[in-house]
Write a protein that binds this DNA or RNA. Sequence first.
DNA 1: TCTGGGGTCCTAGGACCC
DNA 2: TCTGGGGTCCTAGGACCC
Length: 428
Amino acid sequence: MDSAAVPAFTLMVDCNNFYVSCERVFDATLARRPVVVLSNNDGCVIARSNEAKALEIEIGDPVFKRKDFFARHGVRILSSNYALYGDMSARVMQVLARFSPDVERYSIDEAFLLFPARPPDELRTLAEDIRRTVLRWTGIPACVGVARTKTLAKIANRLAKKTPASGGVWLLDDPADIAARLAQVAVDDVWGIGRRYAAFLRGRGIATALQLARQPRDWVRRHLTIGGLHTVMELGGEPCIPFEENPPPARSLLCSRSFGERVADLGSLEEALSTHVQRAAEKLRQKGLRAGAVQAFLETSRFRPEEYFAHSGCQALAAPTAYTPELHAAALRILRAIYRPGHAYQRIGVLLLDLVPEGARQLTFWDLDVEQPRHKALMQALDKVNATYGRGTLVFAAAGLGPKAWHMRQERRSNRYTTRWAELPVAH
DNA sequence: TCTGGGGTCCTAGGACCC
DNA sequence: TCTGGGGTCCTAGGACCC
């Protein structure tokens, strides 16, 4: 990107308390009270309403430690409902696409929009318009940060969120003003600076975004690698993190879950892994990809470091495939090789690697492993049934039938309001 | 008793080759 | 007395993001 020749502004749109906001759109009783959304397995808090934040409930707080506290303060507790959040996300993105042809969907609740340079007043008006329209059309509140680089736009967004008087919009443009603001932003809150780097920087007396922006570049490059250098340059107003309108195809795909209860026996592990492989294969086909390699892994709880045990194995496939039985066979072979009895496992999963687009398949020398039309037809039929009647209508018997101890807990999930058709219970 | 899941990128170091 | 140097590929691990 040649930023000198084409001055441009990045608008960073970030939905407020996204998961909670989605739930509130469909349940008015959640308004104006503390609400938290839990992780898979109902394990810990992953989203909070402002009222919950005011109670100093933190992301990652384990539910079992705060149960009494939640009850005392009338906190509404919800299991996560990704079908709903994914659908609401798509609606928000559709609204954004009306404002600019250049939209980068950065995460489920965030997007960058690119605009040619224009006067500050106009930018502010535009940002306010976007915010208002998203709220009106989807019911989701959002904040908009505007600046010349993604990293500064992220900071502007944060300022908008933290400053009620901002009206949800913040523009960072004037250099002196930027410096003054960066001096008030903790280095931990800079996009690209995580826990480890923040601790490292603080140990060297670098505590604010402004101090970081003023470090010598070779020093930053040496200690924070190339990514850290880009962050520092962007804090200085030089765009160097590219705008990615069309994200490159996925390189890997992972499906894993923690168990509802600890699992020790190979049979249950096989069932769980089998379930994950089926989901992974389905996602793979949805994206029009094939996997060239399979990795399986299992681990005990990280919260018991003394007993922690983790193991994984990888296997290359003869040819890239999206055929569930083949992926399944590979994953189970790996599991049997890495399984060790005598551990209380907490989590298992499968990672599909070396993904290639469906069309880009190479013939193998023997021409034996080339996908057979029958396989493809079978997978299409399988996906169609599951899409129509709900995931899990057709499953491979290896995944086990009926409720299992290892299934994750999800006791407080809201209805899948927007995608309910696919989730209706099926009479078997 | 009870603590998420799904990604990307970068680097160092070893293997291997010429 | 004396043991090159450089390139590439792969992997594991560590950092980051949401």
